[in-house]
Amino acid sequence: MGWLNLFKKDVPEPSFEFDELERIFGNLELKSLAVDKAAEFVARIFARSEFKFLDNGKKKPSNWDYLLNVRPNKNETASEFWQKAVYRLITKNELLIFLSDDDQLLIADSYIRQRYAVFDDTFASVTCREYTFKKSFKMSEVIFLQYNNNRLQDYFTQLFSDYEKLHTRLVEALSRNNQIRGVLSTKTNASFDEKKREKMQRYADGLFKSFTTKTVAIVPAQEGMEYSELTNTTGTSNLSVDELKKLRRQFDDEVADILGIPNALMHGDMANLENSQKMFNTYCYQSLVKKMTDGLNFALLSNSEYKNNKRIKIIGEGQRDKFALAQSIDKLISSGSMLINEVREELGLEAVPWGDKPLITKNYQLGEDIEKGGEKKDESDSD
Rank of each mutant, 00 (worst) to 15 (best):
M1N: 09
V11N: 09
P12K: 07
P12H: 01
P12C: 01
F18M: 12
F18Q: 06
D19W: 08
E20M: 12
E20I: 11
E22F: 10
E22W: 07
I24C: 05
G26K: 14
L28G: 09
L30F: 14
L30M: 15
K31C: 09
S32Y: 10
A39L: 08
E40Y: 09
E40G: 12
R44D: 13
A47N: 04
D55N: 11
N63I: 15
D65K: 06
Y66C: 02
L68F: 01
V70F: 01
A78F: 00
F81Y: 03
Q83R: 13
A85E: 01
Y87P: 02
T91A: 00
K92R: 14
N93T: 03
I97D: 02
F98G: 02
F98D: 03
D101F: 02
L106Q: 05
I107G: 03
A108L: 05
S110M: 08
Q114D: 12
Q114H: 15
R115L: 12
S125W: 07
E130S: 14
F133W: 11
F133S: 12
K138G: 07
S140C: 11
E141F: 05
F144L: 05
Y147I: 00
N149I: 00
Q158N: 11
F160C: 01
F160E: 00
S161K: 12
D162T: 15
L170V: 08
V171N: 06
E172M: 06
L174N: 07
R176M: 14
N177I: 09
N178V: 12
Q179A: 15
K187R: 15
F192A: 08
K195V: 11
K199W: 10
M200L: 15
Q201L: 15
A204D: 09
A204G: 05
S210I: 04
T212S: 13
A217E: 08
Y227D: 05
S228F: 04
S228A: 14
V241E: 14
L244N: 03
K246S: 08
K246Y: 09
R248S: 12
F251Q: 02
D253F: 06
I258L: 03
H267D: 08
M270A: 14
M270G: 05
N272Y: 07
E274Q: 11
F280S: 00
N281Q: 13
S287D: 00
V289T: 06
K291D: 01
L300W: 03
S302I: 09
Y306Q: 12
N309C: 07
I312R: 04
G318W: 00
L325V: 02
Q327V: 11
Q327F: 11
S328C: 07
S328D: 13
S334L: 07
S335A: 15
M338Q: 12
L339P: 09
I340C: 05
E345D: 14
E345I: 04
E345C: 07
D356L: 06
N363K: 10
K372V: 03
E379R: 04
S380W: 05
